[in-house]
Write a protein that binds this DNA or RNA. Sequence first.
DNA 1: GCATACTAATTAGCTTCCTATCTTTTTGCA
DNA 2: TGCAAAAAGATAGGAAGCTAATTAGTATGC
Lengths: 151, 151
Amino acid sequence: MTAAPDMAETFTRALAIVSRQWKRRLDVQFRHLGLSQARWGVILELSRHEDATQIELARVLGIEGPTLVRLLDGLERMGFVERHPSAEDRRAKKLVLTEAAMRILERMKSIAANSRLEVLEDIPADDLRTATRVLAQIASRLEKMGNDENG
Amino acid sequence: MTAAPDMAETFTRALAIVSRQWKRRLDVQFRHLGLSQARWGVILELSRHEDATQIELARVLGIEGPTLVRLLDGLERMGFVERHPSAEDRRAKKLVLTEAAMRILERMKSIAANSRLEVLEDIPADDLRTATRVLAQIASRLEKMGNDENG
DNA sequence: GCATACTAATTAGCTTCCTATCTTTTTGCA
DNA sequence: TGCAAAAAGATAGGAAGCTAATTAGTATGC
């Protein structure tokens, strides 16, 4: 009956598949450093928000507290991150990158940048801008809806 | 130095966050039926490809065989799916939806459609079309790269 | 000033994704 | 024809996400 494709459904399916496949590819590309896409994200954001607490970092990453706890456990074991007690609030921990992490930060950045480049190179800049704007709009809508808590 | 934002990085971050948050929202919306976003996807595609084998269905869904095995285990336990031996190939199973699944299929479809509607309603149709095209391009590029196996 | 409510981090346990490996069956080719 | 390679499904085990509940500390309100 409907020859017209349901754009919204096509969009959501493509979204799910692309995000899974890309994550998978990044996991492979970070593997030789003993890292993964998720752990790399933690290190990157920590390099931009030195001394953040776990809650703050989780918020930036868009993940929940307990998810970050496990990622940090792994990174701490690998010697890339340390949890220091906070002076102002004894419940909280200040997160810091170690020297070891700093040393390989640039290498990690270039792996991530290369991955983006090779996957996105054929996408026209205008289209990418539009797609990014659409995703940002959806993200803020989902966040608002999540806070309103009626879904 | 670069006042211009790195569009590629912004895109990939938004992609990851949106797909996670949306999945989470759908999981909530399907919960009262005892389902999840992942299980719903299996039922939907199965309704479109009756008698598919597991490998065929996994390919359509963009997931790996073992992931589908567990999803089917759950759906079979719930009485929504049955695995029938294939006449042509004794290794393979033909998947079929049960009457119970058929009965709530329309309800599930409308939950999914409503979810898309409420999240996407403010997005201009043209932008959504562009974003969908971009995602489809990326998906096919990732698939090609995955097959070439060098990355 | 103390009880109550909130907040930071953790733990426990579930789901959904993955890879690697195994078993059974089919296919292909020498 | 028969044997090696490939393919379908399952199993085992790990990673990364989630919620719910626990513990410890901070803030609030009467």
